[in-house]
Nucleic acid binder design. Sequence first.
DNA 1: TAATTATTACCGAACGTTCGTTTATTTATT
DNA 2: AATAAATAAACGAACGTTCGGTAATAATTA
Lengths: 174, 174
Amino acid sequence: MLIERLSLVFREVGYTGASLGMLADAAGLQKASLYHRFPGGKQQMAGQVLDTALDWFAENVLRPLEREGDPRERLFEALLGIDGFYAGGARACLLNVFGADEGPFTLRIKDALNALIAAFAKLAADAGQPAERAGRSAERAATMLQGSLVLSRGLGTQTPFRNMLLELPRELLK
Amino acid sequence: MLIERLSLVFREVGYTGASLGMLADAAGLQKASLYHRFPGGKQQMAGQVLDTALDWFAENVLRPLEREGDPRERLFEALLGIDGFYAGGARACLLNVFGADEGPFTLRIKDALNALIAAFAKLAADAGQPAERAGRSAERAATMLQGSLVLSRGLGTQTPFRNMLLELPRELLK
DNA sequence: TAATTATTACCGAACGTTCGTTTATTTATT
DNA sequence: AATAAATAAACGAACGTTCGGTAATAATTA
């Protein structure tokens, strides 16, 4: 899939860091050919990459968190989605990567983060946490998710990410 | 201070995102003049910015964490340093910003993160936590620090950072 | 102290390179 | 034949960098 190849580049070097040469190489196309698919240029590529990622995340992470059913099962399903989305902590988060460059993605990033927190909060509430505590747990869960990605990348180890996956149930359930 | 002005630019737009024009403007100098102070160019500027920041961090955060004395007092002093270092969550972490671009700073970033975790671990151990648990608490504290910065930036609010400052004592003490 | 030399700090202008993008043309598909 | 997909070549603009020279400051000499 073309979008996914582009996504890997953006997630590795960020928006400004991704040159059209790199993107073309990753796509297996010439730079000019990318402009046939994305007349809007680099910004459109990044936007579509972000949209696709957010769609996947909504389907495989948010939806399990928000659906009906046993909270523990829903959380495990979401954690599976998270693990896949970040490749075990090896791939950076687009929200972090695109958020660094203040640009046309700021609003979408903000909405996505809020949606994640809201989904975590619903799960925690469904698991029996009082509303206020569920909100704090949700924010802390999102914080640990993002932080573990930073640490995993900075340390060159996937263990912080894995530890975070193990700790989220304690945080959000019961 | 010249270095601090450059630091603000790097922390705002990252390494690749920072152009020499922006850096020169922030410094109140011409581009050519920056090459008088930094013959090594942009890379040397970033390296010196990183070194200066790490020195400040070591002095005002790591040292309180590792010194002798009451753990609660030491932590509060460190939290004060952290709050100042990140301007209440408004300024990004150089470890995150420079870590995005895989480059000549990777090793220094790794060492700095490990030093922070080690300092947190020593504090938690001094506060009475058994060694193994102190290590986990320390990693979790570093994770929440970095994560709260991502969230604060992404959401455009300082509250995640502030909440993190409030939660660290619970995490590391007792 | 005054004049002179070194040294440092800074700047305008240009360098070659790479950036994102466009145009014109060829190849593939239907 | 017509439409879509891919490309080679080139574009202006911005990039990081270099260079020659000018102001300012310090050191040295007389």
